[in-house]
Design a protein around this nucleic acid. Sequence first.
DNA 1: TCATACCGGGG
DNA 2: GTGTACGGTATGA
Length: 790
Amino acid sequence: MEDEWLWGWDPTPGIVSVWAEPGGRATVWRRDPVTGELVREVERFRPWMLLDRIDDLRHLGSALGGDIEGSARIRYRELDGAGALRFLVSADDARTLSDAVLAGAAIRLGRPVRHVAELGDGVLSLPPEEQYLVTTGRTYFRDLSFDHLRRLQFDLETTGLDPRRDRIFMVSVRHPDGSLDVLEARDATDGGEADLIRRLVDVVRASDPDVIENHNLHGFDLPFLDRRARRLGVPLALGRIGPPGLRQRAARRGAAAGDSDERRRVRLMAPGRELIDTLDAVRRYDFSTRELPSHGLKAVARHLGVARPDREYVRGDQIYTVYQRDPDRIRRYATADVEEVAAIARLLGGAAFALAQMAPRRYERLADAGAATGVIDPLLVRAYLRAGAALPAHEPGDGTPHSGAALYLFASGVARRVVKADVASLYPSLMRAYHIGPSRDRLGALLALVDRLVEQRLLAKARARAAPAGSAERHTHEAMSAAMKIVVNSAYGYLAAGGELTRFADVHAANEVTRRGREVLELMCRELAARGATLIEADTDGVYFAAPEAWSEADERRVVSEVAALLPSLVQLELEGRYAAMLSHEPKNYALLVYDGDLLLRGVAFRSSRAEPFGERFLRRAISGLLVDDVVGVRDAYLATVAALRRRTLSTYDVSSRVRLTKTPVQYIASREKRRELPYEAMLASGRASWSAGDRARVYRTSSGQGKVVTEPDDGPEGAADPRDYDVDHYVRVLRESFAVRLARAFTGEDFAAIFADPDQPSLFEPSIETIRPILTITSQQRVFGPPGE
DNA sequence: TCATACCGGGG
DNA sequence: GTGTACGGTATGA
């Protein structure tokens, strides 16, 4: 039973796309796992919905029948249990069904009802494909691996970002076999662009991919292409069946629908193909790893090591101008884009592929779905219907506030021999250990799913390890493990999400999980402190502590496993990292020195996109010195930076900071008299009076107190001006007040003043920097767990 | 200065 | 007929 809840039950292999219509017709595309051949099958299914009452259909008289005598036009069946959605009704055609429900509701309410959505939570009505998948027990991709899919990538190059004004002038295409195409408009006219779009459609149809991929496909390329095709009257026949034109579905993270309703957001669909956005995969990946510097295509490709060394880079706003004088460069650029998308999709897209083997939703929906409402809810709906059990309706909470995790700062300053111990997947482990599930889940389906997923994930991980590195087999198992992790880790979020979002939400259960979590964290801290550890910081599921000088690495591991043994079974404490030293600044703001010499900076205080490059460099150098007890080195870093500013040996770029211009020129001019703002003054003073809201620029302050713009290093050879007319005193102040202060917790007030004293204003007595040592200050919260070593 | 709103991406 | 969270930045009181 639990296996059916997780995987469905119908073994039909090779489904790569499903398109279903309210009339009860489902078209299923399947790829033979052995030959790779594509078949298209048309199936009948019986559209259905769930209702909280059957009396709205009594007006049908004899046209309404129980499930068993299958001749009535509309049939129903009453499900077991107390759930509010207890009537499963079905008809040959979804419109017959909804018309009947709407008519009955209109009679009951005494007013016209136009859409089932108006009936709120009294109805559960899924999109046709999901009705089909839920009742058949089929899922996508059985017996297929990711590499069986025919995937095509295309990327538009346009003259700008606004489809009302700008045009497509180039499209790069990567075909499923890896071959590349660059299509170009023959001229900058409507006719040239229309012809380009026609050729793109032809190329896609000839390649006949199951999947179309790009980075920000749903946020940029598809809406742009759709708008241009409409304007130019070109039929956009990208789907496999039906009339040309893309279809729409409502989607929170979609693009503006472009009609009267400004807030309506949609994503576009093409029947028979799955439209996959690698930006979704990147976000999902970074959600757990949090290691990506940006979610942009280029940054991600570099980070994942799939960017070629000779990769062409061109700044977005220069693409069309560069194209006009050096088209080859843009061809190489656009080609690299689709190649990187293909590589990223394979590296990060496996999780969604694996989710589609479990949940009864289209692959493209699972690729952009949130795990709680997007994956767990559909799994539970299918489980309940399979068991013939009534489903609860959404219910708002009873007003009980949701309580969160604990966060402690025990000590700030510099600590040595630092250990991070944490519990992997704490919340789902607590749910399993203490059987904390939604109170309305009478089948216990959520906990059963979590149990199964945790067990099967261990299997998938073992199989991945056993498979050869780089093999398709390893990719499959790693992707499955990633998918299972996504679902397991969102089980708690599902409970806590609130009743409007998830069907079985239960704030009491969620609070019980966090309460147990705080209990576990406190136990961990208490027991570590009792064994001699100096606690530094603890948060949710992990703790940083400093080991006494006499401890060896083996001692550290022994103590962690001793404490681990005291925790509930299924809750596994692990030693996650060991560090030579740590600068603890504020909760979640710290620097770590790894034993191999690497310096890790965490938190807003230590990394900010606005920080001036010279300050960031100083901070790294000063903290590196600090963490090896080289206080003279800290002072030297400071003196060297002050000197470099005063002698202007630092470049203009080094003192500039990156800002975002949120006002348009018109808006700024209007408010300028009231308040002058440096970034905008800088734009005006640098002769760049036209910018768009949202543009970024690097600005700095000149000795005359004005702002000026400095060109970005990737602006190309055009601009490399370096006038060094910056305000030295201002930046010396920034150095001390914005950067040096990050080290304040490491010293007494007197020592800090001595280290960061201005070299040009010698004090009466020269303190000896050599004798200063960094300190660690124990804060009062340490006492909660008793002093260490007692 | 602190709270809160909103963005993340694409040419 | 949908729906993350989280960390950072931009904004207004």
